[in-house]
Design a protein around this nucleic acid. Structure first.
Lengths: 144, 144
DNA sequence: GTAACTGCAAACGATTTGCAATCTC
DNA sequence: GAGATTGCAAATCGTTTGCAGTTAC
């Protein structure tokens, strides 16, 4: 994660551009594997290591955010333009964005007693997405 | 995860009891590895598989909850007596419990436009724990 | 006695790393 | 040309699974 030698300059290679583009165009919180697959259509031969290295760099520089959900196995990525929260479908795993406004005063009050200094937050709301809820309505008590 | 044959009865073995006890006694949101290590002191020879299998069962039966944090590599476990949220130190990774009250009406309003049906939520507040904040105050601008 | 459970070791999938070749500045 | 970056393959790491032996009920 931490390179022994920090590069003195960063290069904007075709691979990095493609990864960034794919991330910006994706609305579905893709995993690194999803991103690799999509990027390979534009830059055939690109390796997984490059995708992981680039994603790590994007996250570190605040241009992307990692999302780890309770159920999912792989880390998902999100272009982090603005802070936002997530609606996670417990049935199909789909993730949608939503904004839950919690003000700093509230966070400070909650964390205060432990002397914790809050700097941000992420709310994950779990439930069922429209599609799964509808599917369930037709299959009450059945096996999902 | 889903056994081909669902057991018709469950046995309360010494291993399971030890794992459950360790989890109940742990205040620090241990990883499966942490739990294995602690349980091995009570039940020498216990294997990792047993710990993972038991934790999966505890989670499934609602007696424990999985916690996946943005940074951490391994899943952490939590005895889930009551729903609660988490203060996550971005520096040392320590996790403390906190309760952030969001009422159902709010969740419904937020999720409503997408027809998502909320059933629960988890707020992760990131920041620095008291210890790390204090350490930083003495080492301003230094390398953590 | 028998189905459930355990420990071990091998299998897995996601992610990281070492390294020689390649490319950007 | 130098240093950064890439792709590959091997290495890690957390977690799961197959299986023969053991145990709780």
């Amino acid at each position: 994660v931490t390179p022994t030698t920090t590069p003195t300059s960063l290069r904007f290679t075709p691979q990095r551009r493609a990864i960034y583009d794919v991330l910006c165009e994706s609305e579905d919180h893709p995993t690194a594997g999803d991103i690799l697959e999509r990027v390979q259509r534009r830059v055939p031969g690109i390796g997984a290591a490059t995708v992981y290295r680039t994603l790590a760099w994007l996250v570190q520089s605040g241009q992307a955010a990692e999302l780890r959900l309770g159920e999912a196995d792989a880390t998902r990525y999100d272009r982090s333009v603005h802070r936002h929260d997530h609606l996670v479908c417990v049935q199909c795993g789909q993730v949608e964005d939503v904004h839950v406004p919690l003000d700093h005063k509230l966070l400070d009050e909650l964390a205060g007693p432990t002397s914790f200094q809050p700097s941000g937050y992420d709310v994950q709301i779990h439930g069922r997405c429209a599609r799964c809820a509808a599917a369930n309505a037709h299959n009450v008590g059945g096996i999902a």
